[in-house]
Structure formats: C-alpha cells, structure tokens
C-alpha cells in the first residue's frame, strides 16, 4: 500500500473507530440485557451497567437436563450446526462445477436467471406443497428435510458468487496447467479454486449464515429437539407468556458465536491462501 499522510491516517482510524462502535454498541446492549435481572430491565432511568450482574441464564443454557431450556438450546445448536454445514456442503458440491461451467462455458446464463426466479417466490407459497412432499417421504421433523430445502436456497447464491469469482481468474493459468498435463478436475481443484479462494471463502460463509438464519421453513417442518434449529428454539423462548428477554439475549449472544468463530478461522486461512496464491503481486 501507498504511504498515507498523517491526516489520512487520522481519518482512517476515526472511521474504523466509528465502525467498530456502531457494530458493537447494539451487541453490547444485547449482552447487558442478558446479564440483567428482569426487574432491572424495566428500571427507569435505564441502568447501563447492571448493579448485580446475573449470569444464571448462561449457566441454565448449559445444563443438559430433561425439559430444561439448556437441553432445548444445546440440541438446537447441534441441529443448526449440522444442518448448515451439510446444506453448505451439498450446495458447494453442486455449486462449484455449476459456477465453473457458467464462467468457462458462457452462453447459459439464462439458466441461472431461471433458477433465481424460483428464489424470488415468497417462501410462504412453497411451504405447504413441500410439507406434503416431506410428510409423504416421512421426513418431517428431520434434519434431512431442512438440508434439502436449504440447499435450494443456497445454490443460486453460491453458484453466482463463485461464478463471479472464477471470472476473475485469468484463463491463461488454467491453460498453463493444461499444457502441464492436468485434467479438467485437477485444474479446477488445484489451480482455479485456490486462486478464487477469496470468493470461495465468502461463498462458504455466506451459505453457512443463510442456513443458520432461516426461520419459517424450520418452524413448520420441525417439532422437537431432534430437528428444531436455533431460530425456532429462540422463537420458543420468546413465546412463554412471561417472556424473559434476558434469556433471549443470552441465546442471541451464544448463537452468534459459532459463525463468528468460523468466520475468524475462514478469514485466517483465506489470508494465508491469498498470500500463497500464484498470481497475487
């Protein structure tokens, strides 16, 4: 990077500070709510820092007892993780070759737009027919049903993001690999994908979070801890007639941790991948 003037540096650090603050402030408040007692949350004027921090909700969420909120939460965490990972995996397996095809053998973009149109349909219109299909297959209340549905949600995203990533990879290096005798799949896996690592990383993160977030399908297709995902469990926690907003906040804080951790490691490996990449100057 070019040298910055001191003024520019001040500007950069000021902007970064504002950015960090705007991101952290609401989450910080979420955390504060999670350690405040119900009574303190309705205290006026508002307490920015709770007088008696109360971590009992976190403890409750980690006790695995029959009928406890911890049990619901931990199972939901497990289901969410496995559903998002599996859906992302399937979406990649199908999306990488598709994206490669769109990028290297142009002329079929209309197909991608066609796939996108299915994605524009409001989910509420598709949810009942799919319910019947899953019921007939005996797949209601299973992670499999969610993996199948999410996979169709993720595919257009993943395919398109990867296509635009592959577009940025110079065709010359692929040709060089070809001349060295590499087959098509080897070229794709050992040459193109590593160079497009940044796009791949974004696509993976994107897919994981999209699946992590989905609520409405999961709400209708799951019925107990065997398949309920985190958003559904959160909906359940919010539902009790006496809503404990502190508990929901605690769940929210914990629910955001796995994606953040995955994102952190993904980024580290991405940066490593980038510096190892063959074309970066």
């Amino acid at each position: 990077m070019m040298e910055r003037t001191p003024l520019a540096s001040i500007f950069v650090y000021g902007a970064v500070a504002a950015l960090v603050l705007s991101i952290l402030a609401p989450v910080f408040w979420l955390f504060i709510m999670s350690i405040s007692s119900s009574r303190e949350l309705t205290e006026l004027p508002l307490h920015w820092i709770p007088q008696e921090p109360d971590f009992s909700r976190y403890i409750r969420l980690f006790t695995l007892q029959e009928g406890s909120s911890g049990r619901e939460f931990l199972y939901a965490m497990r289901n969410s993780l496995s559903v998002s990972l599996m859906a992302t995996g399937v979406a990649l397996v199908a999306g990488v070759p598709a994206a490669y095809s769109f990028s290297r053998y142009p002329g079929r973009m209309a197909l991608l737009y066609g796939v996108l149109v299915t994605y524009m349909m409001p989910p509420v219109a598709l949810i009942l027919p799919l319910y019947m299909v899953f019921s007939w297959l005996g797949l209601l209340n299973s992670q499999t049903a969610l993996v199948i549905v999410y996979c169709t949600i993720l595919l257009p995203f993943v395919t398109w993001l990867l296509k635009s990533g592959f577009d940025g990879v110079p065709i010359e290096i692929e040709q060089a690999a070809q001349i060295d005798g590499a087959g098509l799949f080897q070229t794709l896996f050992y040459v193109t994908l590593p160079v497009a690592a940044a796009a791949l990383g974004t696509a993976v993160l994107f897919a994981l979070l999209l699946a992590w977030d989905e609520f409405f399908y999961a709400l209708l297709y799951t019925s107990d801890i065997r398949a309920k995902t985190l958003p559904v469990a959160i909906g359940d926690f919010a539902a009790g007639r006496a809503t404990d907003y502190g508990l929901i906040s605690a769940v929210g804080v914990l629910a955001s941790l796995p994606p953040v951790l995955i994102g952190f490691f993904l980024q580290k490996s991405l940066i490593a991948g980038l510096s190892a990449g063959s074309v970066k100057g």
Binding site: L24, P26, V27, L209, W212, F215, P231, I234, I248, V260
Partner: peptide, 28 residues
C-alpha cells in the same frame, strides 16, 4: 486500508450478520 487490528475488525464485521434475524429483530 492498512491499519492496526485489521483482521480483528474484519472478523467483527461478521457479528451483526451472525445474529439470527429473529434475534436481531427482537434486539432492535
């Protein structure tokens, strides 16, 4: 840009996005 703590801030960017929509909606 180059600045101190860049990787950390980049990771932080995932945070809002990692909050499930329902939690985000309830939080706001």
């Amino acid at each position: 840009q180059d600045f101190f703590g860049r990787t950390l801030v980049r990771t932080l960017m995932i945070l809002p996005w990692a909050l499930p929509t329902i939690v985000n909606a309830m939080m706001w």
